[in-house]
Amino acid sequence: MAILLSFDIDGTLELGDPPGGVTIDMVRKAIDMGFIVGSCSDRPLSSQRRMWASLDIEPDFVASKHQLGLVRAQFDDADAYYHMGDRDTDESAAKENDFGFWWHTEAELEPWLELVNSD
């Protein structure tokens, strides 16, 4: 089962500004488990790429927050799509593009693990 996880950065990831509760270790673990992982943020695309490069992580995608639909089109063979973030703009973008949505506080609990466990 191919599941796509889209991470907002600021307020969501631990190295965001402000820092969020989703750790990079959680992200690495998701990648290792075969999730399709990338970022969808209001940060410039080049800034997102630099962030991932600084972590020695090659994301499957980077996108601006309003471009979740493009991400979905790029990975149209995935079975499920989830975005997580800390703003109403995150929630709106997820709903508009038929993504599941987790608030940053929910994402800290790695709810994607349940998706695998229940598979």
Binding site: P44, S47, S64, K65, H66, T89
Partner: peptide
């Protein structure tokens, strides 16, 4: 890091 034309054109 540099801010690029691609960055600007992809702004929300």
């Amino acid at each position: 890091g540099p801010f690029t034309t691609e960055d600007y054109l992809n702004g929300r």
